[in-house]
């Protein structure tokens, strides 16, 4: 996309050093690190990198979005970059990686960064709890602390390369990789003792057939992930994806009904759901 004249004319120093933006950056860092020295250092880190090399990052702006929203994405990235440099990225336990980003974020806040639990919950619940249900988050904290007794005792700078590898995005679940997930789901979601999943799940042919039968649109996948994996409220999903208020819940309902049908057809639903 061509850079528009108004994008080129954007007065980045004026915007970044405005009282409002300074307040926003401070608020972002304080939410991330609490009212700590880290929050102050992170604010400086963000400002320093925004104006680095004659506002190089900001000047990539082409006018596709509003300047202040673009600035928000840059600040969010920089705060995360600072946190990574400060605390490192210790490889999370495999079961946490499987549970998704809300669990990982909560784990990071309370176990690595040792943020007080109420602060971590407040942050993930969003202002006025519009993003997530705090009771669900409390339950997640209890699970994390129950399974990881060392949580909150380990911190410090750890180099990224030493401990963490991004999961391969091209990985597709096989019978082997699916089994730990199924065990985890039965234990955490269905609240039953771990047991080996039904033998039907062990069949590669069945998995291929299920995979071929599942028809989810990209938007449905995204909504399912946001709502059912990361616990984001449907109203917040509608807001952030700019969908009519009722649509995310409706799309998710349809998708779940479809998944249920497919699994039922292959006798893969838990026994008392049949």
């Amino acid at each position: 996309m061509a850079v528009t004249t108004s994008a080129m004319d954007t007065d980045w120093p004026g915007i970044v050093f405005s009282e409002q933006t300074q307040g926003r950056i401070r608020a972002l860092c304080e939410r991330r690190f609490g009212h700590t020295t880290d929050a102050e250092i992170a604010s400086d880190y963000v400002l320093e990198h925004l104006c680095e090399s004659d506002w190089k990052l900001c000047r990539k702006f082409t006018g596709k979005s509003r300047p202040e929203t673009y600035l928000y994405t840059l600040c969010s990235n920089l705060v995360e970059e600072y946190a990574r440099k400060r605390f490192g990225r210790i490889r999370p336990p495999a079961w946490l990686q499987q549970l998704g980003d809300a669990w990982l974020t909560l784990w990071k806040f309370i176990c690595l960064e040792r943020q007080p639990v109420p602060v971590a919950i407040e942050r993930l619940a969003g202002q006025d709890e519009t993003l997530r249900d705090p009771d669900t988050l409390e339950q997640m904290v209890r699970t994390i602390k129950g399974k990881l007794p060392w949580c909150g005792q380990q911190t410090g700078e750890v180099s990224l390369e030493e401990h963490y590898q991004e999961p391969d995005v091209n990985d597709t679940a096989s019978a082997d990789t699916l089994e730990p997930l199924l065990l985890l789901l039965h234990q955490l979601i269905l609240d039953e003792e771990p047991a080996r999943p039904a033998s039907q799940w062990q069949s590669t042919e069945t998995l291929h057939a299920v995979r071929a039968a599942l028809r989810l649109t990209d938007e449905q996948r995204l909504i399912l992930r946001m709502a059912h994996v990361d616990g984001i409220k449907f109203s917040a999903i509608a807001r952030t994806l700019n969908l009519p208020a009722h649509q995310p819940a409706r799309q998710a309902k349809r998708a779940v009904a479809h998944i249920r049908e497919v699994l039922q057809a292959h006798h893969l639903l838990p026994e008392d759901w049949q």
């Binding site: 679940a173 699916l178 997930l181 996948r221 399912l224 998710a252 998708a255």
Partner: peptide, 14 residues
């Protein structure tokens, strides 16, 4: 919970 269970499985399989 059923929605979460089904969604997680479908997402893992896709």
């Amino acid at each position: 919970r059923q929605g979460e269970y089904l969604s997680r499985i479908a997402l893992a399989l896709s």
